[in-house]
């Protein structure tokens, strides 16, 4: 008996084929994630020369500088802003996502479209629109003045509240979409089962719906939290650049102070922070939810 040619043997070397198919992805990751991260790390060990160019070397001085209370405080404040933004996005976005996922298919498509419509215009244009709304002689104050003149003008623009508003507005869709996906996957029979077993409408949510949509929440929270920590444009435009967040400081190191090594060290620290938070999220993810 002759053995069939190896190429026709199904699944003879699935590993090789899989690797071949993965090559573009791996190349992309290597080229645009791993290499830049290594460059960043290498740069963070260097030094700034008099003219602001990078002198490659090996020094931990930039990391020592990170421990300066100024930067620690900025880190903490950035995390606080991001946490607040994320919490508000969750509070507003979850019910929206839930309702969209439970709506009739035609309505659902329309609502999803509406969630994504803002992406059709530039992020900066939308932020400027918020400036027009929040400024002293803006739309919101005109409305307030009309409703109750004594309250006007509310000094909203160039405040932390304006920054958080802008951030929540910008990142809300990034929370809605993954939560929507996980609610949509949720088997309606599970909710009925919970009702059947005596859970009223208010108890079904924490006991069944919340734990089962946790993967969507985790994805959404990550998608909102990570970019907001490092965001600088919104802070500049809506916050009047008064209170620097870590994104502003990093941007400054690259464009104003021209201290790339220190900027790189800040970036590496931020990267480390995200890695830790991802590991924590993974560890906290309850057993059994991974496979529905």
């Amino acid at each position: 008996m002759t053995s069939p040619p190896a190429a026709l043997e199904p699944g003879a070397r699935p590993g090789a084929v899989a690797w071949l198919l993965l090559t573009p992805l791996l190349a992309w990751l290597a080229l645009f994630v791993v290499v830049p991260a290594l460059l960043l790390f290498g740069c963070s060990l260097g030094e700034r020369d008099e003219f602001g160019q990078v002198l490659w070397g090996f020094s931990l001085e930039n990391y020592a500088r990170l421990l300066d209370p100024v930067y620690l405080r900025i880190f903490l404040r950035s995390l606080g802003f991001a946490a607040l933004t994320t919490a508000l996005c969750l509070l507003i976005g979850y019910p929206v996502a839930y309702q969209i996922a439970r709506a009739a298919p035609r309505v659902r498509e329309l609502l999803l479209l509406l969630v994504m419509v803002p992406f059709w215009t530039s992020f900066l244009v939308r932020t400027y629109a918020w400036m027009a709304i929040l400024r002293e002689e803006g739309l919101l104050n005109a409305l307030v003045a009309w409703l109750h003149p004594a309250w006007a003008p509310l000094g909203l623009l160039y405040t932390p509240a304006a920054v958080v508003t802008g951030l929540v507005y910008s990142y809300l869709p990034f929370l809605i979409l993954p939560v929507y996906a996980s609610v949509e996957k949720l088997d309606g029979a599970l909710i009925e089962a919970a009702h059947d077993l005596g859970a009223g409408p208010w108890r079904v949510f924490p006991s069944v719906i919340l734990p089962l949509t946790l993967p969507g929440i985790a994805a959404g929270v990550t998608l909102v939290f990570v970019p907001t920590v490092a965001m600088f444009a919104v802070t500049d435009l809506l916050g009047g650049a008064r209170v620097p967040l870590i994104g502003n400081v990093i941007q400054n190191q690259f464009l104003q102070a021209r201290d790339w090594p220190f900027g790189a060290a800040l970036g590496v620290a931020l990267l480390g922070l995200f890695l830790i938070s991802q590991l924590l999220l993974r560890a906290l993810r309850p057993h059994g939810v991974i496979r529905g």
């Binding site: 100024v70 405080r73 900025i74 008064r242 620097p244 400081v249 400054n252 102070a257």
Partner: peptide
Amino acid sequence: SAADIDRLVTDLKS
């Protein structure tokens, strides 16, 4: 000195 100036201003703003 540019870097020292930036550090000072960052510090004061924070």
